[in-house]
Nucleic acid binder design. Sequence first.
DNA 1: GCCCTGTCATACCTGCCAGGTATCACCGCG
DNA 2: CGCGGTGATACCTGGCAGGTATGACAGGGC
Lengths: 287, 287
Amino acid sequence: MDTLENRELRYFVAVAEELHFGRAAERLGMAQPPLSRAIQQLERRLGVCLLERNRRGVRLTGAGEVLLHEGRAALDATAAAARRTRRAGGVDSPAGPRGRLVLAVKAAASHELLRKLLDAYAAEPDSAEIEVLPGGICEQEEQLRDGRADVALMYTPWNSLAGFDSEALTTEGQVAVLPAGHPLAARDTLSLAEVRDIPDLPLARWPTHGTYAPGPGPEIHNQTQLAQLIALGRTVAVVPDSARSWLWAEHTAVPLTDAPPVVTHIAWPAHSRSLALAGLIRTAARL
Amino acid sequence: MDTLENRELRYFVAVAEELHFGRAAERLGMAQPPLSRAIQQLERRLGVCLLERNRRGVRLTGAGEVLLHEGRAALDATAAAARRTRRAGGVDSPAGPRGRLVLAVKAAASHELLRKLLDAYAAEPDSAEIEVLPGGICEQEEQLRDGRADVALMYTPWNSLAGFDSEALTTEGQVAVLPAGHPLAARDTLSLAEVRDIPDLPLARWPTHGTYAPGPGPEIHNQTQLAQLIALGRTVAVVPDSARSWLWAEHTAVPLTDAPPVVTHIAWPAHSRSLALAGLIRTAARL
DNA sequence: GCCCTGTCATACCTGCCAGGTATCACCGCG
DNA sequence: CGCGGTGATACCTGGCAGGTATGACAGGGC
């Protein structure tokens, strides 16, 4: 029972995602027959049936589902190993733990906290260079997992902190953002139920891991688009308090009484040993 | 930049652990020259110097240290993928998420809680078969990481829950276990400082991840040995309250006032999606 | 019923690369 | 100054990853 190779995992993940040998082979830049054979070998090696081949297409078995999840995690881990090793060995001294840190943040987030953190950390002695990697709404988890980032700012309840170490930094409430002229904009507070049921003003939908939940509201891709749609009276959004900083004159923010609080965390891979990272975390915890 | 292969990681980890190409090659069951070449290729591929070759032996560079840690994690992840896939596809129905769950526990732990958990879970409808995997003091984390186990009972502050999801089950205090005749055995309570400084009765040392902290006390390998050494008046130990169940007549347990409480957690890999596991966790949380 | 199309599997070949053996270059040491 | 022990180099070879051609089989249009 020799350990399964990374190449086989890549192949299987491609097939499992495409559910089609031909397309998977194309995506992998190879011909279909060797791919078929490789998957068969993998199944024989594991002694497990991974795919159910119906004449028309392919379906995953239970074991296949498991391997898809675990295999993705394993591929992320090796990608992370490669990226972090490259980063550690870049141009700095061969043995020193000093280096660049990559900090993943939500591009849409207010940069008030980020600014404070970066300034405070830069003032520390022996601080490393911080590269800020702005990403989409839920991209931080992935970037942390596959090594594109060393540390991230994440926001519960949107991000999941599962699998990472983390430290809570700030908590804030949420507000509903309405068109300024809307009747409800005059209210002092609103409840989530009220916001969800405004006639002709459906709640905007944010992507979660690249996909949108079904619903009547428009699909939001970025903050400018959202601002525009609200100003036009086409939608209403629920955003954290700090988002008030980018509101327009055409917007009105009304505090929500029962929305879950948004907690900003600093998160990092669970077993990190970098001194630079430890320094950044310490700085963040003191803010 | 093609992704690095698993085989190369195994090779590098072996060399990094042995710090000697010859021994590493022997451990890998291969000749030394191909190993040398593989490591050179790896370094070229990553564009990073991993090892500092002095004429006498080898030393890790900073990047090498990073790759050793991250590479181990990646290898664990692929091993876990293989093991869990095999387990999922064993003999049960191809598509059903029903299967065996492997629960890692500390062999030395009291099985009162474990018994309750197993009984309660077995009484659930649709409960899966649970295989109990008794292990050493700190082995549970590793077993969870490399897929030998699906879920584990862990104990803070000894185990680290970093990287796992977990749920606290019970909290208990700690007691000092002394030879029955010892003068301090008559006390109602003791402090950690007092226990550490008993003349001629050094504190027993447990292994942490396979190694022992330096100190005067004896190195403990299992519970029977510890009981014996205490009964003989050669050592004193600090153990959780529930350990009273295995004490002998020659032992006396004295509650400690300032020892950190021991919390028993049920822990599992952060991204698990198994229904059987979810059921077990739900059962545990209700205990 | 037919053929056509789209699916994955099989058969067979070939070039590359992982790994083996033999040897070198270098250093420390008696 | 040879000797033992280190990692690196040179060269060869067999297995296997990957390609091409083709088969087996099912569904759908006519």
